[in-house]
């Protein structure tokens, strides 16, 4: 079987779930005739028709609101944000309507809200955001950030079948850059389970999305120096797989967290608190983090490169921690 890109894996997940379940519909801006700004839904309108692939006005709040209503009526809507930066326009619908619905009055919202996030493509301050932590701080949501084509497909299928509002952040840098052989048969990847991508003994590097690949490259570099880093891919940020995180730290005794999200209030802080609360006696060094700067995402290539984590920055921080 030919190798499948991360983008194609997402398209396959949507198409296969729409084939499997007529309750699955897609709603968003330019998702139908145009096939989505990144072509993630290309071909879906042809296959499933106008009633199931719905082009909307430029109204993010109405898109999410309508999808919530569809979920109440028994459908399993997929709503697309053309760029995930625009999710801010629908913040109230997500955090006050969808997230609190089951807790408040026992009304589940089976909604998947997906869209392209992330930098490294010179998209500038409004087309590069990683807004996951606004939502990780919102009880009732699930937040998924896949790093591989296999996970993108398997986790999107799980998200569609889930009874809760799931935010599915697709890293646009990975859309066409990574590809892999995927199984022919239907499969899912469980929400809330991290994955150890590389075994190691000297330190743990926790990451997700595009930064997983940066971390794996850094681990390969470090191995040349005799430093064996264990690399954990979170895959889901909410709910967080605390068991896998703590097990790895108990094994390596040192922790570096790498994320593309900005530094203050990023998931690294939460993980650091989790580890000090639960595995303090296992730590042989300070918890370190490599993140983007606390600034908006800048446009010019040298500025964005300076802003983002890099293999060199991860290697440097990991080396220092390994020798601590």
């Amino acid at each position: 079987m030919a190798e499948t890109t991360y983008l194609e894996a997402i398209r396959q997940a949507m198409s296969e779930e729409m084939d499997r379940d007529p309750a699955v519909v897609l709603i968003g801006e330019d998702v139908g005739v145009y096939g989505g700004a990144f072509k993630a839904s290309e071909g879906l309108l042809e296959r499933f028709g106008w009633e199931r692939v719905i082009d909307t006005p430029i109204s993010e709040s109405a898109i999410v609101g309508a999808a919530i209503g569809m979920g109440y009526a028994g459908l399993r809507p997929l709503a697309e944000m053309q760029f995930i930066d625009f999710i801010a326009c629908a913040f109230n619908q997500i955090t006050n309507f969808a997230a609190k619905s089951h807790y408040r009055w026992g009304a589940p919202v089976p909604l998947v809200l997906r869209g392209p996030c992330g930098g490294g493509v010179h998209g500038g301050p409004f087309h590069s955001a990683n807004p996951e932590m606004y939502f990780v701080h919102t009880p009732g949501l699930k937040v998924i950030c896949p790093a591989t084509a296999y996970d993108a497909k398997g986790l999107l299928k799980s998200a569609i079948r889930d009874n809760n509002p799931v935010l599915f952040f697709e890293h646009k840098f990975l859309y066409r850059r990574i590809k892999e052989d995927l199984p022919e048969d239907d499969y899912t990847v469980p929400i809330g389970k991290a994955s150890v991508r590389r075994q190691g003994r000297d330190l743990t590097i926790i990451s997700y999305a595009a930064m997983l690949h940066t971390s794996l490259e850094a681990a390969a570099e470090l191995a040349k120096e005799g430093i064996e880093a264990e690399v954990v891919d979170l895959r889901t940020l909410l709910p967080l797989d605390t068991e896998t995180i703590l097990a790895s730290v108990r094994k390596t005794n040192k922790l570096l967290v790498v994320h593309e999200d900005t530094r203050t209030g990023g998931i690294a802080g939460e993980i650091a608190a989790l580890v000090t609360e639960n595995a303090f006696e296992h730590l042989d060094g300070p918890i370190r983090r490599v993140t983007s700067l606390d600034t908006p995402v800048p446009y010019a290539p040298p500025l964005e490169e300076y802003f983002l984590p890099s293999v060199a920055k991860v290697v440097s921080a990991a080396r220092e921690l390994a020798h601590y």
């Binding site: 999808a67 569809m70 009055w105």
Partner: peptide, 23 residues
């Protein structure tokens, strides 16, 4: 459908229910 305190947000939700009902 239960309201939330933020005003106006029921209108898209009920629009979605009407769309789902037609579907």
């Amino acid at each position: 459908v239960s309201p939330i305190s933020m005003l106006g947000d029921l209108i898209p939700v009920m629009t979605g229910i009407a769309m789902a009902g037609r579907y």
